[in-house]
Design a binder for these strands. Structure first.
Length: 113
DNA sequence: GCGCTGACAAAAA
DNA sequence: TTTTTTGCCAGCG
């Protein structure tokens, strides 16, 4: 299967789970690495979640809806840059604080809902 | 084959 | 309360 599917070789099961959760984030909402990690069972595996984002399978993955605990945009890959994320998040209804961080209490989404 | 780095977060001091 | 250390796991030198 997989017309171009060379994913099983580079990504672990954990990575695919992260992509699956991120893909379910509703528009106008954001989540944090820690929440995804905890949902997958790795409470302190937030770093590994960030790795999965960096290793994103494609630009269709809403990695721009994943931010850190501070609500700051830290993404860095060919599909998403912090600047691009800000534009995109605002386009979806996300509001930023003067501090430059996302208003978490207003847009924080939790996996599993 | 071994060690360091890295889109983070939480517990300990 | 703030600062420091530890934990996670895969990619890269």
């Amino acid at each position: 299967m997989s017309p171009k599917g060379k994913r099983g070789t580079m990504a672990s099961e954990f990575f695919e789970k992260v992509w699956d959760v991120v893909a379910e984030i509703p528009m106008g909402k954001v989540t944090t690495y820690g929440h995804i990690a905890a949902f997958l069972g790795n409470k302190r595996g937030a770093r590994t979640v960030g790795w999965a984002m960096k290793a994103a399978p494609g630009p269709h993955l809403p990695c721009h809806r994943v931010v850190n605990r501070k609500g700051e945009l830290t993404a860095r890959n060919r599909f998403a840059t912090p600047h691009l994320m800000e534009e995109r998040l605002r386009s979806e209804g996300i509001t930023f604080k003067p501090d430059g961080c996302i208003d978490m209490k207003a847009h924080l989404w939790v996996p599993g809902e």
